[in-house]
Write a protein that binds this DNA or RNA. Sequence first.
DNA 1: TCGTAGGTATACTGATCTGTGAACACCTCC
DNA 2: GGAGGTGTTCACAGATCAGTATACCTACGA
Lengths: 188, 188
Amino acid sequence: MQDTRSLTPAGRRIVAAAEELFYDRGITAVGVDLIAEHSGVTKRTLYNRFGSKDQLVAVYLAERDRRWRSHVRAAVDACDSPAEAVLAPFEALRTWSGAGARGCAFINALAELPDPAHPAHRIAADQKLWLRNLFEELATAADRPRPAALATRLLVLHEGALATQPLALDTLTETTALARALVADDAV
Amino acid sequence: MQDTRSLTPAGRRIVAAAEELFYDRGITAVGVDLIAEHSGVTKRTLYNRFGSKDQLVAVYLAERDRRWRSHVRAAVDACDSPAEAVLAPFEALRTWSGAGARGCAFINALAELPDPAHPAHRIAADQKLWLRNLFEELATAADRPRPAALATRLLVLHEGALATQPLALDTLTETTALARALVADDAV
DNA sequence: TCGTAGGTATACTGATCTGTGAACACCTCC
DNA sequence: GGAGGTGTTCACAGATCAGTATACCTACGA
């Protein structure tokens, strides 16, 4: 859709406020008036920029997706070995959002917007598919056997750690350990 | 809270309609008028039984939790060996809801109701904790080493399979295979 | 026979939410 | 100096939603 950097200053502030409010309080629970107020902008401007709330939701998810991918890519680039790079998304998850333990923004969005025709569905599905393919690429680069199956397993582990995040069970360390074992041990 | 069997006939129909509608379309998106209409009951009766929509949401989640636990227990009891029983929740997940691929009702509820004071949070957290403890009990009964760590890993796998369910990637078979390997192989 | 519980029918209140209309101000670039 | 893009102010429409009020009906047990 639209790129954030091509937006006007007011548009960027709106997206920033939407990112925080939608994620923290839920999409349906947050009204456009609240977003306008938090971004110091009139509701009229919001509608002039984005046309509808649904469009703003799509921009919000696309922007979060963009930031997340960039965060993961940075973690991958920071790795020394290809084997270590396979685990980079888990390291990225650890450093992504310390306090804001509200789980995955895309899974949450799907929960609130059941209509498959909503643009949020494509964005969410694309994001997970992207991560799965990244896992497969990294596994291939690290010369792991059966990279496709390994990628699916790592994706499930990743989403499981993300989904159990709001439960305050501290599952990430155990999950990362298991992922490391999966990547290291060819037998499993 | 209230047990379903202690409810009046109209009350049971309301809970049944709420279960279907809340799960399929989302809690916030479904109004009390729609639930009353689908259960063939007046809105007045709904409020006489449950007092508020929040209360009805809590009853809905508690009832789904009860049904899910009973489903898992049945799968556990149907197993021949203790080692097989550790994997029963994954088998239960496979036979739980074939078509309704909307992910975990409790995670979805948390996404829509961010207020930690809402009764839904306690119910959801209790459900995941119950599953984790069940995994630990089953792992102990099957004489697996480090049952606590294994239970956490199996919980993450379970939640990961559930979270990726709406994405239509068919992750459950791969996840079950990994869980089986985890239970079988003491090294990992 | 009478009271009580469960339920119906219908209209209504008050709040909230998305989205629009119209007039006006500022700034930059041609 | 005019035009167009950006944003403001403020009122308002239209819809939806949670929850209430009032009156009435029926079955059943003491």
